[in-house]
Simulated assay, not measured.
Amino acid sequence: MKQFIVTYDNALLLFTQEHGEYCIESKFKGANPIAVTQDPIDTNIIYCGTFDRGLWKSDDSGETWIPIGTRFKNNDAFKQEDIHMTRVTSVKAYKDEGGTSSMLLVGTEPSTLFVSYDQGESFELVTDFSHIEGKDKWFFPPRPYTHHVKWQASNPHQPENIFVTIEAGGMLYSEDYGRSWQANKANNAPVDIHVLRTHPTMPNTLYGVCGDAFLNNGHGTVIESTDYGATWQDINEGIEAKYGYSLAVNEDNDLVISTAKSPYKAHSYTNDTASTIYYRQRDNDAQWVEATEGLPDQQGTIISALTEYDGVFYAANNKGVFYSESGGQQWQQLNAKWPHEFINQHAHQIIPIV
């Protein structure tokens, strides 16, 4: 049985495959879910961060949910062990140092990190990044008075190394399981990394997809580092729609990205909305190629969230969920009846439930 979770503007969708078809269930409507992660030790546990209602937890693979970490009402003071924010923008569960239990890192807006070592029973503040030089220059373009933790990733070969990205403030990293953090000091480092992926089989490799092309100083759409962020290279040949939003990579080192010609076209919710998907394969002389076969019309498609599972790529958007078994060249829609109320909703993140 295959399962996926996709966060949309006003609900979390749980996809469950039954007899070749997918059943879609909508969870906690109106909570504005954004980020989602699965516990690596107890895989029945899923965490979801929302933009306005804090952090939520499911211990039955997404069937039921309870709020955690922000247990307050009206004007009650936060408890010491709470997350002192309601805008949770990034969540990721990792195996801890011993590898036998898990820890949960929670990123917020404004940018802070909280950690839980007891599956969400209590939290402690890790950092507000006040020690990071240049924090005063961080900004999120639509709301330039603030910024947030956007994405998290870890080194599969050295799990003590964890990376986070700030929108928009570049990349930070920890070498001690998230206890302390420092800024990426690479020359000409990328600024606005929307998704950062570690490569499952190639040591030292990071891939990122960025909005840097629309900033005064920054990289292009896709960046690559073969030394875990010490240096960065652009890999953009063939990309015409240069605003990057999501990225996925498989074990064959095939890459797919979702892009648009501008942030407005990617996220506008108007008739001008348009987005596309590109793929890049190692045996295809490093060229990006636009994918069209099996995907919805670019016009009217809000930019897609991407993931990979068992070698297959998945893309979620307002037209449905699509998959590619050919490294991103051809796509098919999941066999599911698409709910009409989601044709104007933005997909934020998609993950497989394994």
Rank of each mutant, 00 (worst) to 15 (best):
K2W: 12
D9N: 15
L13Y: 11
F15K: 07
T16R: 10
E18R: 15
G20M: 11
E21P: 00
E21L: 10
K27S: 12
G30Y: 13
G30M: 09
Q38P: 05
D39R: 02
P40N: 01
P40D: 02
I41P: 04
Y47A: 05
Y47I: 02
C48Y: 04
T50V: 09
D52P: 02
R53S: 07
D60C: 01
S61N: 08
S61E: 09
S61T: 09
I66C: 04
F72T: 06
D76N: 08
A77E: 02
K79A: 09
E81P: 04
D82Q: 10
H84S: 07
T86M: 04
T86Q: 01
S90N: 08
K92P: 01
Y94A: 02
Y94P: 03
D96H: 07
G98A: 12
S101L: 00
S102V: 02
L104W: 01
L104H: 00
V106W: 01
P110S: 14
L113Y: 03
L113M: 07
Y117I: 09
E124A: 14
L125Y: 06
D128N: 15
S130T: 12
I132C: 00
E133W: 00
D136K: 15
F139V: 12
P142T: 11
R143Y: 14
R143T: 15
H148M: 15
W151K: 10
Q158A: 14
P159H: 11
E160I: 04
E160F: 05
N161P: 06
F163I: 07
E167R: 08
G170E: 09
G170M: 10
G170I: 08
M171P: 00
Y173I: 03
E175Y: 04
D176F: 06
D176N: 15
D176S: 10
G178S: 06
A183M: 09
N187D: 11
N188G: 03
A189C: 01
P190T: 10
I193M: 08
H194A: 07
H194F: 12
H194S: 11
V195N: 10
L196I: 14
L196K: 07
T201W: 02
L206G: 03
A213Y: 08
A213C: 11
A213L: 10
L215F: 05
L215G: 00
N216V: 07
N216K: 11
N216D: 05
N216Q: 11
G218P: 03
G218F: 02
T221D: 09
V222L: 01
S225K: 03
G229W: 02
N236S: 09
G238H: 01
G238A: 06
S246K: 13
S246R: 11
E251D: 08
D252A: 12
D254Q: 14
T259D: 11
A260W: 05
K261N: 08
K261S: 10
Y264G: 11
S268Q: 07
T273E: 14
Y279Q: 13
R280T: 13
Q281T: 14
N284L: 10
N284P: 00
A286Q: 13
A286K: 14
W288E: 15
W288H: 13
W288D: 15
Q298I: 07
T301R: 12
I303T: 14
L306I: 13
E308R: 03
Y309R: 13
F313H: 01
Y314F: 15
A316M: 11
G320W: 05
Y323V: 07
S326V: 04
S326T: 13
Q332I: 02
Q332L: 06
Q333S: 09
L334A: 11
L334R: 10
N335R: 02
A336G: 10
W338A: 03
I343Y: 07
P352V: 00
